[in-house]
């Protein structure tokens, strides 16, 4: 059962407060909520809530490795998925030219897509960046394309593939707060303090993993 402190409305406000007022340009914030899977006695981090802000200049990050043909094909795939999701949420049958699909015809950026596919992911305690942060009870801060690409965590490599340059996972009371950016953002105590304040958790500042 979700505690009142972590109800979804409250979570959304906290995630929004975390990045809307920040000096740095974060593209998104996600709260991975921990729960125990009874049959396996394992802690699993699943989607709690997320706030998507977007990048400052989306044109800057376009199609890092793909050709024009691949880009078009990938966009078609993303738009198709978005159309189906729109249909699922609104209950209106998806079809090209439908007024409700206007937003789908706009390019689906890499960060938007990364945020969307994040909703399908979960992490067993100790696995992936969020799981590792939870397991070690210490924040993980990865800055730079090379470091993300060289990470042992699939999520970090996936983030790099979608143009992110910074990803941070900070453990909190019953989950992990993750932030991502297409900019290079270096470790700051400001963010840690903000998470500590908003998500009510004592972080050992000396134990941040680079």
């Amino acid at each position: 059962e979700t505690m009142p402190f972590f109800n979804q409305e409250s979570l959304q406000q906290r995630l929004q407060a975390l990045i809307d007022g920040a000096r740095e340009s974060w593209a998104y914030a996600i709260f991975w909520q921990s729960s125990v899977v009874d049959f396996a006695s394992q802690t699993v981090l699943g989607w709690g809530d997320g706030y998507y802000k977007g990048e400052e200049d989306k044109n800057k990050r376009r199609g890092s490795s793909s050709s024009a043909a691949n880009f078009v094909a990938e966009q078609e795939h993303r738009k198709k998925v978005l159309r189906e999701l729109n249909s699922l949420i609104s209950g209106v049958q998806a079809s090209a030219g439908n007024g409700t699909d206007d937003a789908v015809d706009e390019e689906v950026t890499d960060t938007e897509w990364f945020f969307l596919i994040s909703m399908t992911q979960s992490f067993v305690n100790g696995n992936g960046l969020p799981g590792l942060a939870m397991y070690s009870s210490s924040p993980i801060w990865v800055t730079g394309t090379e470091k993300l690409a060289a990470s042992q965590c699939e999520r970090a490599r996936q983030a790099q593939g979608f143009g992110l340059q910074t990803i941070v996972c900070i453990p909190s009371a019953n989950g992990v707060v993750e932030l991502g950016s297409t900019e290079l953002i270096f470790q700051s105590s400001d963010l840690m303090n903000k998470v500590k304040y908003l998500f009510n958790f004592n972080i050992d500042m000396g134990s941040v993993t680079g």
Partner: peptide, 30 residues
Amino acid sequence: ADLPIARRNSLTRFLEKRKDRVTSIAPYQI
């Protein structure tokens, strides 16, 4: 239809916000 509630809420919010953004910039794309 059987999306967990947290994901459904997040997805709804994300899609609505995207729709607002696209609608607000559309007149300038002519």
